[in-house]
């Protein structure tokens, strides 16, 4: 309950904090320094207003990818594009200083915070809709996402508990239920084995011990490191892992590239992948 109140409060702040454009009009030269925001912008119909995106914004294909860094933004490089709105991630290096510098140059800055729940992802889409003058587009995207996700989740409702392991990298970092990724698994009422170690990291990303994974015997393993080259065969070869249920029954799922780490419209694909995977298990 408390969590809900906090996230509702957070959503309120985010929406009200989004600058109002009554005076300046609708922004026509947007720079997105966030791969998720880029996906959102194109989905809500603001794509034509976007003039540049950062070097990790690889979706959709028509997004004007540049060498701009979202991780260590450079004010001069940004200004060179003459933007009127810049979307900046709050976790970027010196985000506050970058924001101040851009605002001094009369550029509007939209600071995006990484969400920890689906509701916050929707809030960001709404806020981007307001900031870019695409309110109805944003509403359509959100209602589509909501209905598809609830359909997927209700179609794969399970009665038996299911242990899952979401692997971030081959050194066994994982995401517990307090994280954005973890919430997705929690929506399916799956048992996330990382929760047993959730206290180890207050951001919710503990590094699990191999022995613990064996002990908890996950029935499905999701590889978000598949994009880094980790395969089901690599997982099966790890010492002592041959007896794990997911390995024995070949329920190791390579997650599509970038999908689990983007909080945009393609989240639906993430839900669908999980649904397909657990649908195969009785």
């Amino acid at each position: 309950m408390l969590k809900k109140i906090i996230s509702a409060g957070f959503a309120l702040v985010l929406v009200t904090a989004a600058p109002s454009y009554a005076a300046q009009g609708i922004p026509k030269r947007i720079i997105s320094l966030s791969p998720s925001a880029t996906e959102d912008l194109f989905a809500i119909g603001a794509g034509a207003q976007v003039i540049a995106v950062d070097d990790y914004s690889n979706f959709p294909a028509e997004a004007p990818m540049t060498k701009l860094s979202a991780f260590t933004p450079n004010v001069e490089a940004i200004v060179a594009y003459h933007p009127d709105l810049v979307i900046l991630n709050a976790d970027a290096t010196k985000a506050q200083d970058i924001k101040n510098a851009l605002e001094k140059l009369k550029i509007i800055v939209f600071v995006e915070h990484a969400p920890t729940a689906l509701s916050q992802a929707y809030t960001e889409i709404t806020a981007l809709g307001r900031a870019t003058g695409n309110i109805s587009g944003a509403q359509t995207v959100i209602s589509n996402m909501k209905s598809k996700i609830s359909q997927i989740v209700s179609a794969s409702r399970r009665h038996k508990p299911l242990n899952v392991f979401h692997e971030l990298d081959s050194t066994l970092y994982s995401a517990s239920s307090t994280t954005f990724i973890g919430h997705v698994y929690a929506d399916f009422k799956l048992t996330n084995i990382a929760d047993g170690a959730a206290k180890a990291d207050d951001a919710g990303y503990p590094q699990l011990q191999s022995e613990y994974v064996i002990k908890t015997n996950p029935q499905v393993i999701f590889l978000s490191d598949a994009q880094d080259g980790v395969s089901a065969a690599d997982v099966a070869k790890r010492p002592g892992w041959a007896g794990i249920s997911a390995v024995k029954n070949k329920h190791i799922i390579a997650l599509p590239q970038d999908i689990p780490s983007r909080w945009g419209p393609r989240l639906v694909d993430f839900y669908q992948t999980i649904s397909n995977a657990i649908g195969k298990i009785g």
């Binding site: 590094q207 699990l208 011990q209 022995e211």
Partner: peptide, 10 residues
């Protein structure tokens, strides 16, 4: 390293 944060690693 294995026991202080178990079942996580330090």
């Amino acid at each position: 390293a294995r026991t202080l944060l178990s079942p996580a690693e330090l």
